[in-house]
Every structure is written in C-alpha cells, then in structure tokens.
Nucleic acid binder design. Structure first.
Length: 481
RNA sequence: GGCGCGUUCGUCUAGCGGUUAGGACGCAGCCCUCUCAAGGCUGAAACACGGGUUCGAUUCCCGUACGCGCUACCA
C-alpha cells in the first residue's frame, strides 16, 4: 500500500533559537525511519514567521543535530536536489501555488482586517458559537475582488473548505481518523505580507521535496484535513502520516519551558552524553517487545519501527535520564570521562593541570558522577577541606581513640617517601594492630580529618590523590595540642 | 464551548482472550563496605469506571469520567 518511491522523510523545525527535546525526538524517529529503510532524511527550516526570526538559530539547530549524531542527507549547509531547504527562500513557489488554488476555485482572497477578525471571534465566544472565520469574503464577486485589489487593499488567501462531507486519514500510529468538514476553518494559506502559513508551505514543500512519510508531533493531527484538502486541490499525492505522542511535563501538559530544561543545548551544556540522551529519547514513546533499554544509534536503526510507537504522551523524566547518563558515563574510557568533566572543573577554578593526578581523581569519582556538571561538587574534597560538622567531629575526631589514630598516622606518614594507596592501606593495617582500633573508629577519624566529610570515595585513593604534604597538613589541623 | 487524540505500578513501558500482569527509573530493605556512591539481591507499587461480546476479558466493541492537543495572517 505504501508508494513505490524511495522513502524520504524530513524534520522541519522552525528556527526558534534552540532545539526542543521533543524536536530532537521527532528528528530521531525520522532519522531512524529513513536509515532503516535506506531512505533520505531531510532537514528543512520553516521560517515563515517573520516576527519570530532568531539570529543564528539555524546554525545552532544544525550544530545540535550534529552533536546528537543525526546526520541529514539534504538540508541547509548540505545541499541536495530539492533545495533551497529554507522556506523563506522559496516564497515564489508558495505564491505560485496559492494563485493556482485561487484560480482553480479551491481558495479565495480575504480582505478582512485583523481587528475585524478579532471582533468576530469575540462575538462568537460571547454567543458560545464555534470560533472560526465566518467566510464573509468567500462570497465576494470577482468585480468586488478586482476593485479592492486595484485599490491596493491588503488581503490574505484562504482555503475554501467544503461545507459538507468528511475526510478519513489513515495514520500509521493512530489508525483511521475522520474529520467533518463543517467544523473546519477556512485556513489562511498566504499571509498579507506575502509569506505562506505553515499549512501551505508545509504541503508545497513536502510535495516538491517528494516526502513520502510525514512523521511529526501529535499537535499537528488536527490540521491534517486542511493539508489533505490542499494536496487534493493541487492534484498531488498525499503522503503517509505518522503522528507521534507528545512529550509531557511532570504535570502532563505539553513539554514546555518553566518546568525544567527543555532545550537540547541545556543538557549538552551540563555534559549529558548524546548517546544517553538519544537512547533515553528513543524509549519515550517507542519500545521493542523485549525488555531492553540500551541501544546504540545503529542498534536503534535496526530495531526501530513506526508500528511500535505508542499512542499516549510520555512524561520527560529527568531522573531517569540522569540514571541513563550515569550508565553511559561509567562505561566511557577513562580518557573520555576526563575530557567530559574537565570544562566543569576548570570553570569551578580547580587546578587539574597535573594529568596524572587528574586521572586518579576521575577514577575515584566515576561511580559518584551521573552527569559531568556534577563533577566539581564531588571533586571539591581534593582541592579544599570543609570544616568538619560538629557532631561527627566530636564523635570521631576529638575522641580519645580518634586523636590516637591521627597521631599514629601523622608519625607514620612523616616517615614515608610517598603516599600511595597501597602504602596508606598498610599503615591503616598497622594502626589497627598496634592501636587495637578498627572499622568506623579507625576510618572515620582519618576520613574526616582528611576530607572534612563523613562520606566520600575510598580512603586510600583519597590519601594518594591528596599526597603526603596535604595529608600531613590536614591531619595536623585536627590534632589537638 | 467545538473537534481530535489518549488512558497498565508515582514515571517510562511489555502484554496483542486464559499470565503468580513482566522489565526499567524512583522508593524501601538486605548484601558488599570505614562512609557515600557504584554493583548485587529482595520488596512495596498498576490494568480509570460502567455496560456489552465471549466459556473466559488488561486485551475486542460501546458509553462515562479524566487527561492532553488543536481551535492565529505561530509553527
């Protein structure tokens, strides 16, 4: 039933300045579908709203997609046989087809002013009527239209929606969906500034770019009948539709700002790994039948199918993302873990210029880091010491055994060349046998004296990283005269 | 208000007529352990409701409720 043409899908964001995580998921599903079927994945920029231009938005979008590993086959900066891939560079095409629609009786000119429409909507709301254009310009005679145009009156072009009947669309994810024409609005296709609306540009481009499958968010489902009407009016083949379930805030509203980070760039800036974010996003609305949750991008390509995309919206759970990122982080080679954390530690002002020492720090911290941005707080103990909390200090540090342990350690450490983890463990062993102190009573005084904290990485590791002099200094601070 | 879509643990989900309703995050406990993490084990936790269809419904159909989306010269 699918057409014979090669599969071509597109991700068509509007350049808002950042890439929404929901947008990334849409892009990902398009990408996976294209790769799975040896098709083409196209990036198209939908910048037909002149009031919402954002400088550098496209470049940012491209960079973010690249970061996520979603390479597109055609699009801005990449070229292709169906360009340009930026809608503001295709205005002539939309105007031509808008005119064609008017000429063949599928659309008409509307001279209503925005204020007039606003008043109309208000009245409709007050009378509890359906809010939509009352089609007053639909009945204008051609003489009337010509004379208004001659006077230079601004106008828009509206779709002439049939008064009766309905239309059924088969959505790959949702099955058959039917819409009645009589509740549809005469949608504006071409604005008075000569720019197309989403509805026109979208249909025109999808046709000319030979898009076979439209995979996009569910918020577009209600506009499908208008789009189909345009395809039919132009005698074009209607592509396959697949409307993805929405990504939601914790309160189940459509994922938006104000309830946490939604820009992919936010997660990137915190050091989230693209592999983790992509893996997590893939599972929001799609899953294989088996209980599997870790996939590389190519494994996703292999496993993906639109048929297994769910219908219900999915809450974007940052906690689970963090967990998944931690999984990926821990499996990274040490060098890459070091690279991932480096910028955050440098920004925090920590001196990590000693590669050898830095390596050991990251080794020690790895199990404690989910996301690289957390590295500084976890690493703090290696660069400065907190004043121990009163209760633990009194229990372990200023107790008799505590002081005994510290003295013992101080003496032993003074005599050795270098503090290695191994040597440090041996010394603790000696303390245990000669002092008769073990367990908590042995380790806690040392830990607290060395780090100021009751919790932290393995002690021998900490001691080795601090080095002999720093260990000595920190011990002395806690030894009471 | 109208139209559309949706509804399995708190969250992400498996399930496609007969299951002790499975997994993951989170949570709790235990193990490991000086501690916190990480890791391992265990546990609490769900089929929105009402009718049908059927020998039998989480699963199929219809309602209801609830949620969400759309309802712009924004996408």
């Amino acid at each position: 039933m699918t057409n014979q043409h090669p599969i071509r899908v597109r991700f068509a964001p509007s350049p808002t300045g950042y890439l929404h995580v929901g947008g990334l998921r849409t892009a990902l599903y398009n990408f996976l579908f294209a790769r799975k079927h040896d098709g083409s994945f196209i990036l198209r920029i939908e910048d037909t709203d002149r009031s919402r231009q954002v400088e550098g938005a496209t470049e940012n979008l491209v960079a973010t997609l690249r970061w996520a590993g979603l390479d597109y086959d055609e699009g801005p900066g990449k070229g292709g046989n169906f360009g340009p891939y930026v809608q503001s560079e295709r205005l002539e095409l939309y105007r031509r087809h808008a005119k064609e629609l008017v000429d063949n009786g599928s659309a008409y000119l509307c001279f209503c002013a925005p204020e007039e429409l606003e008043a109309m909507r208000k009245a409709q709301m007050e009378h509890n009527e359906p809010v939509r254009y009352d089609r007053r310009c639909r009945a204008l005679s051609s003489e009337e239209v010509n004379s208004r145009m001659a006077k230079g009156a601004p106008y828009v072009i509206r779709l002439k929606v049939p008064m009766f009947g309905d239309i059924a669309v088969n959505d790959i994810i949702r099955g058959n969906v039917t819409f009645q024409f009589n509740v549809l609005d005469d949608q504006v296709l071409l604005k008075s500034d000569g720019f197309p609306t989403y509805h026109l540009a979208n249909v025109v481009d999808d046709h000319h770019m030979q898009i076979t499958h439209i995979i996009r968010g569910e918020e577009w489902l209600p506009s499908v009948p208008k789009h189909v009407l345009i395809y039919q009016a132009l005698d074009w083949e209607v592509p396959q539709y697949a409307h993805l379930p929405l990504l939601l805030n914790p309160d189940r509203s459509k994922l938006s700002k104000r309830q946490g980070d939604i820009a992919v760039e936010d997660y990137r800036a915190k050091g989230y790994l693209p592999e983790a974010l992509v893996n997590y996003l893939a599972l929001l609305g799609w899953s294989e039948s088996e209980d599997r949750e870790f996939y590389t991008l190519s494994e996703l390509v292999e496993a993906f199918s639109l048929e297994r995309v769910g219908k219900a919206g999915a809450i974007f759970d940052v906690e689970k993302l963090r967990w998944m990122n931690g999984q990926y982080f821990r499996h990274l080679p040490l060098e890459r873990r070091m690279d991932a954390c480096r910028p955050y530690l440098e920004a925090a002002g920590y001196d990590i210029s000693d590669e050898h020492r830095y390596r050991k720090i990251i080794e020690a911290l790895t199990p404690r880091i989910q996301v690289p941005v957390e590295a500084p707080e976890k690493a703090e103990l290696f660069f400065s010491k907190h004043t121990p909390a009163k209760d633990v200090a009194e229990q372990f540090l200023y107790s008799e055994t505590g002081q005994k342990v510290l003295h013992f350690l101080l003496d032993k450490l003074r005599d050795i060349e270098d503090v290695t983890g191994e040597r440090f463990s041996e010394i603790l062993g000696e303390a245990k046998s000669s002092l008769g102190v073990k367990g908590k009573n042995l380790f806690m005084p040392v830990r607290i004296a060395l780090t100021g904290e009751a919790h932290g990485p393995e002690l021998p590791l900490v001691a080795e990283i601090l080095g002999k002099e720093e260990c000595l200094n920190r011990l002395r601070e806690e030894i009471q005269a």
